[in-house]
Write a protein that binds this DNA or RNA. Structure first.
Lengths: 362, 362
DNA sequence: AGCAAGACTGTGTTCGTGCACAAAAGTGCA
DNA sequence: TGCACTTTTGTGCACGAACACAGTCTTGCT
């Protein structure tokens, strides 16, 4: 019989502002001023407080702060159109969840949507956004130039902003909440090559919007796929095809699947996997595994009925939730939470673990 | 150019106890008594308050409550030995994280560990636990009878308890935080059969503790695997082998892998996948994909070096976190959060998304 | 020196909730 | 009815952080 091992875990007795004040030989008010760097504190006392602070490790608590908070905040939340059940809709759910969690803080969020396939719409949206007096902005970016112009103006006005889903090179955002799309691509590739035989091929489906740059995410995902295939010495087994824009049925693609019997895996680079399942079904092929991205309502159904074998997801709810939380924390304490990396886990969803993704779990 | 769609999201103005009191024609103290069912309120006023409550949808705020809370709570946390980097250690991390998050509430947690392979140790542990005066208990159960006896006593003493990782039939726990092991098994099976050819086989590795019942979880996982294989008409492609107890190297299993060339996938039913990688390596086989469970430190390393192809994980940190949170919420408000289902998502981890599981994300 | 402007610092009030205590109302019994 | 007792109800303070305000101390200028 082995011994009963025991251990006591107590709370790390949270230090109070009053105690800090006492240790530093100042009043609570001064500590408060230092903590929020509101200024008007002599160098001497600032240093005294900061010295104590460094030793005791004071922890901010959003909720306790909120009890006494009188100020109210206004955020802008700018994304492509968030259709019911879409990726952006899920992100919005996360934003609302944060609003709920921090309902003791007075926050108002204005949601502004633009057409992600029309840069003039985006431009107009950002233009209108500039006339709003807000304390912070959350941006789901698409168009590089338009977004950058807007961000520059925000920087000039000292309004903090956060990217979700993807970042724009050159911007000075507080943080970006997104997943590493290279890893996403590599995971998709691993699934495509899982137990793969010589001669079997993998098809990559691109989005085929006319006159439209492909989204950065889909480009990077493809790079990830490519790097994994190259590393596995299977570079030659990749094929490419294109999904036409809109809901138009692609007879071209149907022919593609009919003719390429050696294709056993299909990776759809965007969230339109559910459209490809229809094509595959029409082609009569039953030996193809479809790997898609994003847990939209349509994709969810396809996962359930078997049309899609696996989905790679980037927890849009978490992105929205953390974005709001970070903005609050930043505005209340003047500095972003240093623990935050901005990297959001990648979820691999099969039919079996799908049910857990019904309710939002952060 | 399409229109810019806009929408305003504001906070849902939280109702205060004072307002409720006013609406019900009573004092704030009475509302407080009703909310926490402390008794000593006339039927008449109770009904008046509850009527208002039902209309306005009052929401508890853990943190504001905590500000004024003077009471302190004591929880017991009873698990198998939580070796560094083990599954139980991860669960403990989640408990500590909750302690951290709710550091404004006075909570003390006593961790008691027993030897999961020695029921007398478990019995002794529960025996000692009964002499502790505590407000709630979190149990990671292993032995059915011993646990049930302890739980009966807890029920008698009206001390709430919560299971993590697995539940014990017949107990009256507040809630159990665990994943559906059937689905876990089915996911493992899906991976094993992913792109599988006729003639290829899958080996299931059982734990081989002497004189020891297998853990409920591993039994249920096997049922899940079996059901998936049966459904796919591949029942015949399953083989079984056993891992000896302790760290002893299994030459028997090495021979198994050498002889069964048709085995292409291996599912290790418990968290000891990393031990099996050594055997496979010794056997010289390089065409086998190992599917394991639980993101322990050792398994993590094997995932990185490729010895393990995929791990199925059950977010032990979340389990620990939610267990503590539920206990707090229960003790403060007298009733568990009805939103909680207790089901924890299943994570499928490859080498590519492993980095995100370094830091605990709830 | 006298004085005002500004920098600095401490005190006191506020928020919503929990809880102790006091006040009020009801109950039973001689 | 009067008295002791219990049950019910209201009031007031504490909690910890934010912030307004008032008081104190510099500093520069006439």
């Amino acid at each position: 019989m082995s011994a009963v091992i025991t251990e006591v875990k107590g709370m790390a007795k949270q230090i109070k502002i009053k105690e800090i004040a006492q240790l530093a030989g100042v009043s609570a008010g001064t500590v408060d001023r230092v903590l929020h760097n509101r200024g008007n504190v002599s160098r001497e006392k600032t240093e005294a407080v900061e010295k104590v602070l460094a030793q005791v490790g004071y922890k901010f608590n959003l909720h306790t702060s909120a009890v006494s908070l009188t100020k109210s905040y206004r955020f802008l939340f700018i994304t492509p159109q968030a259709l019911r059940g879409s990726y952006w809709d899920a992100l919005k759910d996360g934003v609302n969840q944060a609003l709920d969690e921090y309902s003791d803080i007075h926050i108002e969020i204005l949601h502004r949507e633009y057409d992600q396939f029309d840069n003039t719409s985006c431009q107009a949206c950002f233009g209108a956004a500039l006339s709003e007096a807000v304390d912070g902005v959350i941006i789901g970016p698409t168009f590089q130039n338009e977004t950058l112009a807007y961000c520059r103006e925000l920087t000039r006005r000292r309004i903090p902003y956060i990217f979700v889903d993807a970042r724009i090179e050159g911007a000075k955002e507080v943080i970006t909440f997104c997943t590493d799309q290279i890893s996403c691509g590599r995971m998709a590739a691993r699934l495509a090559l899982w137990n793969c035989r010589k001669g079997e091929k993998t098809a990559i489906v691109h989005s085929g919007r006319k006159n439209q740059r492909r989204s950065t995410n889909s480009i990077v995902r493809e790079q990830g796929i490519l790097s994994y295939f190259r590393q596995s010495g299977m570079e030659g087994s990749l094929l490419h095809t294109t999904l036409p824009s809109g809901e138009n049925f692609s007879s071209e693609m149907e022919t593609f699947f009919r003719e390429h019997h050696e294709v056993r895996s299909v990776i759809v680079l965007n969230s339109l996997g559910y459209q490809v399942t229809k094509v595959i079904r029409r082609s009569g092929r039953k030996d193809i595994r479809l790997i898609g991205f994003d847990l939209t309502e349509q994709n969810r159904r396809c996962l359930e009925d078997g049309g899609i074998a696996a989905l790679l997801c980037q927890r849009p709810q978490s992105q929205g939730f953390y974005a709001v939380r970070t903005l609050i924390s930043l505005l209340l304490y003047g500095k972003p939470d240093p623990n935050q990396t901005g990297l959001i886990p990648i979820d691999l969803v099969f039919k079996e673990n799908l049910p857990y993704y019904r309710e939002v779990i952060l």
